[in-house]
Amino acid sequence: MKKLKFIFTLLIVMLIIVSAAWLIPEKIPYISKLQLIFGALFTLLLPLLLLCIIFAALATKNLHVSIERLSIGGVSLLFSRPEEIFLRTTRAFLETKRTLYKIDSNKDNFDETLDSYFATYQFFRKEMAILNPSKKKQRDLYNISVRIISELNMFLTSHQNNYRRWYKITIDENKIEFLNSQGQCEERKDVKPHLLPIGELQKYYYDYEAMLKGFNDINTFFIDEVNAKLKVNISKWESE
């Protein structure tokens, strides 16, 4: 019923706009009425259509307006409830982020996993902007977003810079260095990074165990806390 009302209102508004064309005088110097109408349509089509949609949606109470979502002038037009949009977009996003729920230290490239974690951090910072924590249905989703951002921020701050610097130098120079018992830097002459599987190479990182524990803590957080709210289907990864 609401959809019918929305469509009916939209048609009425568009009919009014088209009807207004007949108010234009029949003869205008140097330009025909038809040329004027087509010129106006091509010039104003997008803003007129946008105004029609906004008016019709507001008339049927089927529109939410939120700041800081990309649309026009920084204003986002949402044609569903914010919590429904948030759940759909976050579930679809997290369905592609296995390493948030299950890290495989033998197969997953930690450098690429850090990229994925940072992308997740940015994603939730953007998407939570449509939520209003003062509304009960949106408050829990807002709070879990804040937790996700906080947990990922702590992990990335602790591990990202150090690991990326070590990984880049190791790959670029094709050598593995370590500190000996005297605290001096030495090179492993018997190992070449380019000849190692990624899982073996990563074990030479000087803070490997702490980083792996950090990954496992993130996995536990997303399985136990995040999935309790967002209900992502993670069963497909259990057998991997």
Rank of each mutant, 00 (worst) to 15 (best):
V232E: 12
Q202K: 10
A57N: 00
F6V: 00
G73P: 03
S66L: 07
I218R: 06
D217S: 12
P25F: 08
N153P: 00
Y142E: 03
K203Q: 13
K175N: 06
D217N: 11
I67E: 11
Y121R: 10
L48I: 13
E238A: 15
A59H: 09
D217Q: 14
I223C: 13
F178C: 09
H194S: 13
A21S: 14
K27E: 12
R139D: 09
E95H: 10
L212C: 07
K102N: 14
Y117K: 06
K2G: 05
A20R: 12
Y30E: 14
A56F: 05
T120V: 06
A92H: 13
E200A: 15
W22D: 10
R165Y: 05
W166T: 03
L50T: 06
L11T: 06
T60L: 13
K136T: 07
G183I: 06
A210G: 09
R164P: 04
F6H: 02
L114T: 02
G39D: 11
A56W: 06
E186L: 09
S145L: 10
I85H: 05
L44Q: 12
I130S: 03
F178T: 07
I176H: 01
S105Y: 09
F178E: 11
L15P: 00
K213N: 13
A59D: 10
Y208V: 01
P133M: 13
R69G: 14
F8Q: 02
R98A: 00
V75R: 03
T120Q: 00
N161H: 09
L94F: 14
D111E: 07
L100F: 07
V75P: 00
I148S: 02
Q182N: 04
A20Q: 11
K192R: 09
L156D: 06
L45A: 04
S158E: 15
P82H: 02
E225N: 07
I31Q: 11
F110M: 07
Y101E: 12
F42L: 14
L63F: 12
R98V: 04
R88S: 11
L78S: 03
A119W: 03
R165H: 04
R164S: 05
K97N: 15
K231C: 03
E151D: 12
R147Q: 11
T96K: 10
K107C: 04
H159T: 04
A57V: 03
D172C: 06
S80Y: 08
L63Q: 07
L10W: 02
L15K: 01
F55E: 03
Q122W: 13
K102Q: 15
R139G: 09
D115T: 01
D111R: 00
N174S: 09
Y206G: 01
Y208W: 07
N161M: 02
G214R: 11
E209A: 14
K135T: 13
V146F: 12
N233E: 04
